[in-house]
Computed example of a mutant assay.
Amino acid sequence: MLPQLELHRLEQNCQDWNVPTDAMLLISRLKARSLQSIAGSAAMTIGVHNQNWCRMNGNRKIRIVLADDHEVILNRVRGALDHDFEVVAAVSNGQDAVSEVQRLDPDVLVTDISMPILDGLQAVHQLRGINCRTRVVFLTVHADNYFVAAAFSAGASGYVTKSRVLTDLIPAIREAVQGRTYVSQSIKL
């Protein structure tokens, strides 16, 4: 039998993963009847107990291009994102970010501001100039309001400081995909 807490988590995961309503209703009914062992079996059957629900449902993971001129940062961010997202490219400058976004059409570009050849702000300006649909989340050391304002003026959906990468980046990406904005809590607007 699944404990009540597990059933609650299962319901929450259904909402987080956009599980079809009929599957959520099945789990809710089973929970209401306290048929926990059946609810657990149903959860395993419909596949909501693992992170692969999107692929099982014919959907795909959120596709991301990373841009940062520090390889250590790229590797750290890729490691943090690989479980929940599909990182389709990682580049070290803004010019390559523009090229890869145009070529791969990802859902989100996670980019630094300070990079060689073309900085992140310039790259995003170029992408917006060609009506690119890719959402942008800036991941940067710059916590100054000037940079935050410049990022959102360029067309950003999110702004995360590197000191908060592990706590803020995933929520920022999810908000961006939903058409909302996100700013790290460490930034005082």
Rank of each mutant, 00 (worst) to 15 (best):
His49Met: 11
Val108Cys: 04
Val141Lys: 03
Gln126Met: 14
Val77Gln: 13
Val101Pro: 00
Val108Gln: 03
Asn93Lys: 14
Pro106Glu: 08
Val91Thr: 05
Val48Gln: 01
Asn75Trp: 01
His142Trp: 00
Arg60Asn: 15
Arg133Tyr: 00
Pro116Asn: 08
Cys54Asn: 04
His125Cys: 09
Ala42Leu: 06
Thr134Phe: 02
Leu66Lys: 06
Arg78Tyr: 08
Gln95Val: 01
Arg78Trp: 02
Met56Tyr: 06
Ser99Val: 03
Asn57Met: 14
Arg60Pro: 05
Asp68Arg: 13
Ser114His: 05
Ile113Trp: 03
Phe85Lys: 05
Asp144Ala: 13
Ile117Pro: 01
Lys61Ala: 09
Ile130Asn: 02
Cys132Val: 04
Ala97Ile: 03
Val87Thr: 02
Val87Tyr: 00
Ile64Ser: 08
Ser41Leu: 05
Asn75Gly: 09
Leu104Gln: 02
Asn52Cys: 12
Gly79Met: 12
Ala90Leu: 03
Val98Arg: 05
Ile117Ala: 13
Val98Ser: 08
Ala143Lys: 09
Lys61Phe: 12
Gln126Ala: 13
Asn57Asp: 10
Val137Ala: 03
Ala42Ile: 05
Pro106Gly: 06
Ser114Val: 04
Asp68Trp: 03
Trp53Gly: 12
Arg78Ile: 02
Asn52Phe: 08
Asp69Arg: 15
Ala97Tyr: 03
Asn59Pro: 00
Cys132Ala: 10
Gly47Ile: 06
Val77Thr: 15
Gln122Arg: 14
Val101Ala: 04
Gly94Asp: 06
Gln95Glu: 07
Ile64Phe: 01
Gln51Met: 11
Val141Trp: 02
Leu81Ala: 12
Gln126Tyr: 12
Asp112Trp: 06
Gln126Glu: 13
Asp144Lys: 15
Asp112Met: 10
Gly79Glu: 07
Leu127Trp: 01
Ala123Leu: 11
Glu86Met: 07
Val72Thr: 05
Pro116Gln: 08
Asn93Val: 10
Val77Ser: 14
Leu74Asp: 01
Ser114Asp: 08
Leu66Asn: 06
Val101Phe: 01
Asn145Glu: 05
Leu109Trp: 04
Val148Pro: 01
Gln95Gly: 00
Asp144Thr: 04
Ala149Pro: 00
Val148Met: 09
His83Trp: 10
Val72Lys: 06
Asp144Asn: 13
Asp119Thr: 13
Ser92Gln: 15
Ala90Phe: 00
Ile117Lys: 15
Asn75Ser: 12
Ala150Trp: 03
Val48Met: 11
Asn93Trp: 04
Phe138Pro: 02
Val148Cys: 06
His70Met: 11
Phe147Ser: 11
Leu139Tyr: 10
Val124Trp: 03
Val88Pro: 04
Gly94His: 12
